[in-house]
Amino acid sequence: MMFHYLLRRLFLLGFVFVALTIFAFSLGYLFPGDVLGNFTGLRNISPAEEIVLRQQLGLDQSYWQQYIYFNQRILDGNWALSFSSQQNVLDEIINVMPATLELASYALLLSLIVGIPLGIIAAVRKDKWLDKLISGLALVGYSIPIFWWALLLIMVFSLTLGWLPTSGRLSVLYEIPTMSGFMLPDILLSQVPYREEALVDAIRHLLLPAVVLATYPTTVMIRFTRESMLDVLEQNYIKTARAKGLTRLQVLYTHGLRNALLPVTRQVGLQFSTLITLAMITEVIFSWPGIGSWLIDGIYQRNFPAIQGGLLVVSSLVIAVNMFTEILHTMLNPLARKF
């Protein structure tokens, strides 16, 4: 049964990827400018080169044939060149992606650690002042525009108090050899003498962006956990458990939490796309060298191959995370299985 389900998901995944690549392929024609330039990223193509390239891309053949060639290039890692740097777009994305993933994963982790317990507390103390305080704060965090919130925090903590830096991942004083691209593990793995100082500096750089980025998902987690917990606490099996003589804490732990937190796994996947959008804005404000600021630069410079590549990679990532959390949710929750 489970096998059948996974097979269907896999089929769906394939379908979605085909649709995504068709979309990305059609952008080569939709973007303004020369089709050849959009697909290869080359500038100032000489007439002799043009004939060869047209042959390679199959531009004189049918759209289907061109699409197949496009997919082959994607799979071979032979992506278009970036207009601005004339580097392979895939290599550039691999360079900037870890910074985004690092920031997003710390923010997500922070939102889970803070949001879920607060949501549970709010649900348990429903309509008491603690619940009102938490729910009110969550509503405020839910409504605040992220770029304005980032500017407020920068004004307080960086400009007025001078505690935290405003941009980048690490002070230029330190040089850490890149291994995984993730800053904190890289520092821990490196053999430089100023390891501890660099670590503190990296954390100081990370703190503001991570808090800014975590604000929205945290409030979503609080609100969602609270709702889900309240639903569960109304169920009959909770009353049964109480009637059998379990203490409130026991009921909460063995019957409440397990059932209430199941939908939360799914919510993480659903929020991932929003998280990436917010991460892109956060990166621009804090000059964080991730895929978000890279893409925004791409649009300022009309760097079409970069946008096309970024669309492919970011969307694939979001699709993969969505699919993974959905499968996880189905495996954990027997009620969600509709085989």
């Binding site: 979605v16 952008l27 796309s273 929003t274 990436i276 959008t277 892109m280 804005i281 893409l295 925004i296 791409g298 649009i299 946008i307 970024g310 669309l311 970011v314 969307s315 979001v318 699709i319 969505n322």
Partner: peptide, 10 residues
């Protein structure tokens, strides 16, 4: 699944 900002950029 396509983030709204990415869609706007495209």
């Amino acid at each position: 699944t396509i983030p709204s900002l990415l869609l706007a950029i495209v």
